[in-house]
Amino acid sequence: MKTSHLFTAGLAGMLLFLASCKKEPLNQLTQAESRIYISSYDSAANFSSFKTYNIADSVAVIRDGSSSKQLTAVDQAYIDAVNKYMQQKGYTLVGKDQSPDIGININRIYNTTTGVIDYTDYLDYGTYWDPYYWGYAGYGYYVPYAYGVYQVSEGLLSIDMLDLKNAATKGKIDLLWNGLIRGEGIFNAANADSGIQTLFSQSTYLKSAQ
């Protein structure tokens, strides 16, 4: 092979390398950047007309349709953070038996997705795990069965504000506001305060007139 052709092959190899250099977006995110904070509200509600609130003393854990009540250190951190930022917005914490205007529930929700993996798609397995690693250079892999089942669980945290003030007259309990937190590290107590702060700061209409 001529020198120019060797050069050609080398350059083509470099192009191959560059072509494989896709920036994978998920690899560019820190744990904090992976999290999203979603808030929604009832546009008919006048948040300044509410003065008092109460927050449930435990958290509902909703997992694939079934639920239970728990109070872990993480749950307590979220309750404390909601209390802190509700009071910064001018709302007053009162006892559940003192007819609070707003009731607040916090929920941990886990959704499990079940899927099927097709092992016949594992054509590139040898590029992930070179058989050389096991002392069998040049061998190929073979999967004697075709499919496997996997489960992936995703957790999210939900905060609900309920209209207790007008429940009796309306004959129903309206959802006033909902905050959702999704992403990595949401069930870490150290992230509770910043998460709730973000939800409240983007909900500028949350303000008591008192």
Partner: peptide, 25 residues
Amino acid sequence: QDYYQKYPRDVYTTGDHEVTSAVLS
């Protein structure tokens, strides 16, 4: 050709009366 950009955290309108704080990529 591969294009990529990550924007700093901001608040985006994602629905009627719904906003989302996120890092957008």
